[in-house]
């Protein structure tokens, strides 16, 4: 695949178009903060929901940064953070054999059962 995209949009300016690009003087020697996933509960009674990811040195900082980034407009009242490396995920390549078996089990849904209209409260 050798597709050249020459048309650029806002936020899509080709690299190397600059005349004053300097040789990279910074070195990537700094140790980096680990990545965390942030989950937020928007109000009591609701599940925590994935809000996004951020970098932080430790859990305390991840929670504080999560507060600063994701609750600027009262979007949350409780935060969970977990280091991203501890999240295990199903493999999208396996999704066919993993999820397909439930596709032909329509009888698991209430709409499968044809009942008379007179039947109430069901």
């Amino acid at each position: 695949m050798n597709i050249q995209i020459k048309k650029f949009y806002y936020g899509d300016i080709p690299d190397g178009a600059s005349e004053n690009e300097k040789p990279n003087t910074h070195k990537l020697t700094e140790a980096s903060w680990p990545l965390w996933e942030v989950f937020m509960r928007s109000k009591q009674g609701l599940d925590h929901k994935h809000a996004g990811s951020l970098h932080a040195a430790d859990a305390q900082m991840a929670i504080e940064n999560g507060r600063d980034v994701y609750t600027r407009r009262q979007e949350g009242i409780s935060i969970w953070v977990v280091e991203s490396k501890y999240i295990h995920a199903s493999n999208p390549d396996d999704s066919e054999m993993f999820y397909e078996p439930s596709e032909d089990k329509v009888y698991r849904h209430p709409t499968f059962y044809d009942l008379p209209d007179e039947l109430k409260h069901m």
Partner: peptide, 18 residues
């Protein structure tokens, strides 16, 4: 990595809206 992106911005390699 985030570091690489920040580095590309700071060195002038990466672009931002004019």
């Amino acid at each position: 990595s985030r570091e690489q992106m920040i580095d590309d911005l700071n060195s002038g390699k990466a672009k931002y809206s004019s």
